[in-house]
Amino acid sequence: MAGDLRKVAYYPGCALEGSGGPYDRSTKAVVKALGLEMTELDDWNCCGAMEVKNIDPQVQTYLSARNLAIAGDMGFKTVMAPCNGCYHNLKKAEHDLAHNPEAAGVNRRISAKAGHRAYEPGGVETIHALDWIKKAVGEEELARRAKGRLAGLKVANYYGCMYTRPRHIFPEKDKGPGSESTLKPHFMDDILAAAGATNVDFPLKTACCGGAHSLSDSDMSTKLVLNILTTAEACGAEVIATECPTCHTGLEMHQVRAEKVLGRRTSVRILYFTQLLGMALGLSARSVGVQENLSDPGDLLAEKGLG
């Protein structure tokens, strides 16, 4: 991994300014508590999420290339994105610009018209908040600071689709011990285990929540989410830890919808991994934005002596 990992550029993305507000708040709180440093990208733009690629994939590549160019201009070698969608799109742009001449050509053309330098691949590395915390801090340090505050909490770690698929845009994954696995990711498990949590054996770590069609095909999303929630409960989890604002909001929304529309009630709680980690570091539930979540985990947190 390139550059000084204690100082990275921060790309929050649109969701973290809106419905993913608690993810933004908790990420910032954890970063501060761990003594890491991040600087928000100047004048960043939306990565195109899951939607712009359906209009035109080359435009989606340009959107991420512009953000990578800004990171480079600000002197950063590493840009950190906590949102799986942003992370995926930045990684995909990096790959496409290096391997697809058409994508590189369109990027140069739109960049010229837009009046800024065209990003050349290889200058900036994108990492996820998970990679960053695991590599810049490490489990030993986390365990020392967390003092087992999450002990007794049973967690299902849910990574979603965009963190591991498709494999070819993540050249650093699947490289053996120490690297992340695209089939059975474990970085979140590692971090929360270090904080004292008990990770349950959860088979749907990379299942899809239907986030792309959360609103446009709600019935499908509700079925997919309900499957994730009931499986987590069957595995003994009290909490599902998330690392993506779309997954997180989708799980919360469709947990309510499953109850209202299908009459299927589930009680597993949903928290961002940064919220769990923040509380493990001794921060209050309020300072990691738990009250901004759509669902209310208050009773469970009280029972576990957290927050």
């Binding site: 649109c14 300014e17 809106g18 939306c46 959107l63 069609h213 446009s216």
Partner: peptide, 23 residues
């Protein structure tokens, strides 16, 4: 499809402002 409507609203918002307004 509903999905196409969604993609188009999303795309238009980015062309206009560079960002997404979820609400």
């Amino acid at each position: 499809s509903p999905s196409t409507h969604f993609d188009e609203s999303f795309h238009d918002s980015i062309v206009r402002t560079g960002k997404i307004e979820e609400g």
